[in-house]
């Protein structure tokens, strides 16, 4: 079982090209934990900003009448991938894992697989 700290550590070490990771409560936009990041990547700013991304998508799906649920969101930059994985287990709803990746070093399929694995192990 992963705690917030060990889950973020696992994301940063097990996923190639990881630049920063955060566990975010999207009812408040606040991060429960952050790891990595740098001057250009302020993870608390990312937590608040990506909360708006998740809320907008949830609202859009409601308006479209889609009954399905979001598994993850991928945002592709010129040089980075940003992955948002919404947590689904009974204790972790209302949270998402946010991961920024270096596009050159990352394997997107593997990164998504690893995030899914970390989510399954996470218990807050």
């Amino acid at each position: 079982m992963f705690t917030t700290e060990t889950a973020l550590k696992e994301a940063m070490t097990a996923i190639d090209g990881a630049l920063g990771a955060a566990l975010v409560d999207y009812s408040s936009g606040m991060a429960l934990g952050t790891l990595g990041g740098n001057k250009e990547l302020d993870l608390n700013v990312a937590a608040a900003g990506n909360t708006d991304v998740v809320r907008a998508k949830v609202r859009t799906m409601e308006m479209l009448g889609l009954k399905s649920e979001i598994e993850d969101v991928l945002i592709t930059l010129n040089d980075q991938y940003h992955l948002i994985r919404l947590l689904k287990s009974r204790n972790n709803s209302g949270l998402f894992l946010y991961l920024a990746l270096d596009k050159e070093k990352a394997n997107l399929a593997m990164a998504r697989h690893q995030l899914k694995r970390i989510e399954a192990e996470l218990d807050i």
Partner: peptide, 10 residues
Amino acid sequence: PRVNVGRLHL
């Protein structure tokens, strides 16, 4: 109540 508190702080 549904405000993004993270953004509110920033």
